[in-house]
Every structure is written in structure tokens, then in C-alpha cells.
Design a protein around this nucleic acid. Structure first.
Lengths: 187, 187
DNA sequence: GTTAGGATACCGTCCAGCCGGTGCAGCCCG
DNA sequence: CGGGCTGCACCGGCTGGACGGTATCCTAAC
């Protein structure tokens, strides 16, 4: 059973958050309207008011994934020098892998969308393509920069599925090394 | 609708294969016994003869993931010099990313398991942990080696979800660069 | 300044259909 | 003859979704 967190804030956000929690805790296949509404502390009718169908809930989850990603990256930029040419790439590493709970939720949103309707991933596909276009234009070593983003993705996914093999120390080591490779790809 | 491939071979394998195809084509949420049996060209009773419950099917899918992984790596070792100290790591890159259809199916198996029952991932978690232990023992630069495996995972996952942004040329470039980083992590 | 009326945000119930699973009579091939 | 299926009927539970109701707030006419 997924606990009903009595988080305040607008119901819409609580529902989305609850959906991510459900996926992370019991799997995407058990993402049902009933379970989500209970986990969000909202009646089923209330859920249906905000998301008139399951598909619309999943679509919102996909968009939330994109938004969370952008937000994480944007807020991480603050901690990196503006002179650093690999700033964007480093913000991606720190932003996504730095805030643990958020990255797990993001992976959950991605999983949920993927499991239920592959066509809903289009939003995400577009955003990733755009990001890689920027990367190709700015980096000196595109392949190396791309590998960094792939590794970030891989780690995020493994942690969402709780199959990551790293100790805390190893994880830190990996993040540090990723930052180093980010530097290398802009030299 | 997922086509019924009239592949020969033992029914058990055909069913597993069909399940992977269903997940890849319509998503893990629509992995139902009816759909899988139809896709495998087997009656529902026949499916239940081989896998007495859905859980047992998913468990077999998880084990198949592990097996496929080992098989891909093992067969890729043939193409790499035995003197190469990064042989295992390189085999992981070439083995998994080299055979496109297989890697997509592997991602599908992982997705299906993750979506339906997170506890079934334990087999996979164990295998990954074991692999990383070997990696930590053999490599000179563990973090860098770990990043290579993460990137391989990330690319596999993105391709399974069809959100990979790379052109064929870029993909090749990425694989080549991964091999280079593999070398670096053993110097 | 009070009251009518509409929009917003939600509740609770009901239902048709799908899903996993059972049971079983048969058939086909070695 | 018997193991490995097929084909089919059936079931109970769960799922997505429809629907009618309701409490709260905003607006604006009187």
C-alpha cells in the first residue's frame, strides 16, 4: 500500500507526485486511478476532475519529467562558473544526480509513461533531441559529451529500479569522474 | 496488434520472445496473457502450461535478461585480443550495443519486469553487483569503467524506449569513444 | 448588503468490460 | 498410449470511466 501523504499544495501537483510515488514503490503496472487517488489523498472523482482520463494523467507525467529535468539543470547552473564552457553539461550531471529524491521521481515518471503508452514519450524524445543538438554544437568532443549524458541517464534509471550497485562512496566517485569527462569534452 | 510470428523452435522460447516483442511494441502495461499467447502463436492454455502464472512468466523474462546479457558479452569476447586488459569491459560494449535487435529485446525484458513486479528484479540486481565487483577488482580507474557500463545501459534503455537522439554515424562515434574510455580505465 | 447564479474543485457510487486464472474434452505425433 | 499441446467455456475481481451530487468562492444585480 502506498501511504497517503498529507502534503498541502494544489491537488493537481499532489496527484502527479503521488503517481510517481506509486510507480517507484509498486511498479508502473499497478498505477491505477484508484491507487493514485488514494495515495494523493483525493477521491477518484477528484482525480478525474483534474485528469479526465488515464492517458491525460500519463501525458502530464511525461511533461512533468521534461519540466523537472529542465528545472534541475537550471537550478544547478547557479553553482557553476559562467566562464566554464562545459557549464551546461556539468549542470546536467549535478542537477540530475545531485538531488536524489527528484531523480528517482523523474525515472518513475519516465517508466510510467513508457509502460503505458510509448507514443506519449514523444515530448521527451523531442526534448532530448534538442538538448543533444545544443551539445553537438557547443562541445569539442561530441561523443564524449554524449557519453556523459548517457551515463547520467543510466544511473538515474538504475536508481529508479533500485538495481544500482554502487556504494555512496563509489557513487560520489562516479559523479566526480563524470565532471572530469565533461571537462575533457570541451578542451 | 502484435503479429504472430511463426518462428519455429520450442514453444517456451517463442513465448518469451513474443512477450519481449509485445512490450517493445505496445508497452509493458499491455503485456497480458491473452496478447502474449496470440503473439506467440500459442493458445492461452498452452502458455499457461509453460508458465503457470503471470509472475512465473515475468520471472523467466528477468532471467532471460541476465542470460542474454551474459551470452552477448561472452560471444563478443571472441573479437577482442586476450592480451587486452580491458577485454571484459569492451566485450560488454560491443556485445550489448553491437547486436541491435537483441539489445532492444533485453531492454524490453527489463522494462516488463520492472513495470510489473519490482521484487523480480533481484536476479538482475545481483548479476549487476557481481559484474561491478569484478570491474572494481580489475580496472585501474573504477569510476571511469563504471561510467562506461552506465552509458551502455543508458543507450540500451533509450533505444528500447525509442527516445535515442543519435544518427547512425553519431551512434558509431559514441561506441568508438566508449571503447577508448574503456582503454583509459585500464592504464 | 444580501442574494441569485455560475464557476471551481471535489466526492461517492455505479457499471461494463477486461484480466488472470481454472477446468476440461479432445487431438496429434512420436 | 501419453505428453504436449489446442480450443473453449467460465468466473470473480479489478479497472477505467461516467455521472450526479455538493461545498466553497467569485461576481454582480437589486
Amino acid at each position: 500500500m502506498v501511504e497517503a501523504h498529507a502534503v498541502p499544495g494544489p491537488a493537481r501537483d499532489r496527484i502527479l507526485e503521488a503517481a510517481e510515488r506509486v510507480v517507484a514503490e509498486v511498479g508502473a503496472a499497478r498505477l491505477t486511478l484508484d491507487v493514485v487517488s488514494q495515495a494523493a489523498g483525493v477521491s477518484k472523482g477528484g482525480l478525474l476532475y483534474h485528469f479526465p482520463s488515464k492517458e491525460s494523467l500519463l501525458g502530464a507525467l511525461a511533461q512533468r519529467y521534461v519540466q523537472s529535468m529542465e528545472q534541475c539543470i537550471e537550478s544547478a547552473k547557479g553553482g557553476i562558473s559562467e566562464q566554464d564552457r562545459s557549464r551546461d553539461l556539468k549542470a546536467c550531471i549535478v542537477g540530475i544526480l545531485g538531488s536524489d529524491p527528484r531523480s528517482k521521481a523523474m525515472g518513475a515518471a519516465l517508466l510510467a509513461t513508457a509502460a503505458n503508452d510509448l507514443t506519449l514519450l514523444e515530448v521527451i524524445r523531442e526534448r532530448i533531441a534538442e538538448y543533444h543538438k545544443e551539445l553537438a554544437a557547443s562541445s569539442a568532443d561530441f561523443a564524449r559529451a554524449a557519453i556523459v549524458t548517457l551515463a547520467v541517464d543510466g544511473l538515474m534509471m538504475r536508481e529508479s529500479l533500485r538495481i544500482s550497485p554502487f556504494t555512496d562512496a563509489q557513487r560520489q566517485q562516479v559523479v566526480r569522474e563524470l565532471l572530469k569527462i565533461a571537462d575533457e569534452s570541451y578542451r
